[in-house]
Simulated scan of single mutants.
Amino acid sequence: MYSKLLLGLCLTAVVSSVSATTTISGTKDYGGATVGTSCDGSSESQSPVFVLTDGATIKNVVIKAGGGADGIHCLGSCTLSSVKWNDVCEDAATMKGGSGKTMNVSGGTALYASDKVFQHNGIGSTVNISGFYANTIGKLYRSCGNCASNGGPRKVNISNTTVANVSASVVGVNGNFGDVATITTLKVQGWKKGSPAICVNYKGVQSGSESSKIGEEWSSTACKVSTSNITAY
C-alpha cells in the first residue's frame, strides 16, 4: 500500500500545467516530466508551449494531451531530443529560424496530429528528423504553402523514422520555391505505392491564397526519395 501511494505521489509530481509560454535558452532536460498549457482545437492563434531561442535544446519532455497548444517554436537553430506529444493540438513544432539555421529532431513521438506534425516556415533553413515515430497524422512534415513573404528554399532530411495511419502524405514541399525533401530510411504502416503518398510537391503561394497540389513525386528535384527508401510494415 505504501509503495503504491508513494508511486502515485511521484507520478503526480512530474505532471504539470503552465498558463504561459516557456522560453528556453541553452539546454533544458525535463527528465521525462509531462507538461502542457491548453488546446484550442486547430486555432492558429494559439501560443506555443515552448519557444526555443537560437541554439537551444529541449530534452526528455512529454507534452500532455489537451495541453499542446501550438507546440514548440524554434526561432533559430535548435534541437528537440526525445520529445513526446501525447496528442498534437495545432502543430507539434514549427521551424521559424531563417537562412542557415537547423532544427534537429532526434527521437521522440507524436500522436493524433489531424493536420501536420512539423511545420516549416523559416526560409533558407533545414529540418532534420531522425529516429522519430508518428501515428494517426495528416502529414509528418509540411513546408509552408502560403506564409507571408513566402519563398524558399526549405529543406527536410528524414531518416530512421516510422509513421502509421497517415491520412494525407508523409511530406509536402513547394518545388517552385526550391524546397527539397530527402528521405533515406522510412517505415510506413501498410504502405503500398501511392497509399499513403510519401512526398507530394505543391505550388507555394503568398499569404491570402492557398497552395495547389502538383502530386506525389519520386527521385525528382523536390522529392529525393525512391521506393527502395520505404519499407512497409
Rank of each mutant, 00 (worst) to 15 (best):
S82I: 03
G175S: 14
S47T: 11
T23K: 13
D40W: 09
C10M: 14
K4R: 12
A65M: 03
G100Q: 00
S219P: 01
K139V: 00
A232K: 12
V14S: 13
G26L: 12
S106T: 15
N60E: 09
F50S: 03
S82H: 11
W85D: 02
I123W: 00
N150G: 11
P196G: 07
H120V: 06
G152F: 00
L52V: 07
A148L: 04
C74M: 13
S195K: 11
G97Q: 10
A110V: 01
T227E: 15
L186M: 08
I72Q: 05
I24V: 15
I230E: 04
G122T: 04
T185L: 00
E44F: 10
V171T: 08
V170P: 02
L11M: 15
S38N: 13
S226N: 14
G178W: 02
G66E: 06
N104F: 07
G152K: 01
S82R: 10
S25V: 08
T162D: 06
I24H: 05
Y2H: 11
G31E: 09
N104H: 08
S169E: 12
N174K: 10
G97P: 07
N121D: 14
Y233N: 13
N146V: 01
T34F: 01
V88K: 01
Q119G: 11
V117A: 05
T109Q: 09
L9Y: 05
I230Y: 04
G67I: 02
K192C: 04
K28Q: 15
T231I: 12
V163K: 06
D115N: 14
C10V: 14
V156S: 06
T231A: 11
A232N: 10
A134Q: 04
G26A: 13
L80P: 03
D87Q: 11
V205C: 06
K139Y: 13
T231E: 09
A232S: 15
L6F: 12
G32P: 06
S169T: 06
T57A: 08
E216D: 10
S220D: 09
G138H: 08
Q189Y: 09
C199T: 08
S38G: 06
K213V: 15
S25P: 05
V117L: 08
I137M: 07
D91I: 11
S212R: 13
V51T: 14
K64F: 01
T23V: 15
Y133E: 08
N104S: 14
S17G: 12
S195H: 05
Y112Q: 14
V49G: 02
N121T: 12
S17D: 08
T53K: 13
I63T: 02
H120C: 06
S16K: 12
T231P: 06
G31H: 09
K59W: 09
C144T: 13
F132V: 03
D115A: 05
L140K: 04
K59C: 03
L6S: 11
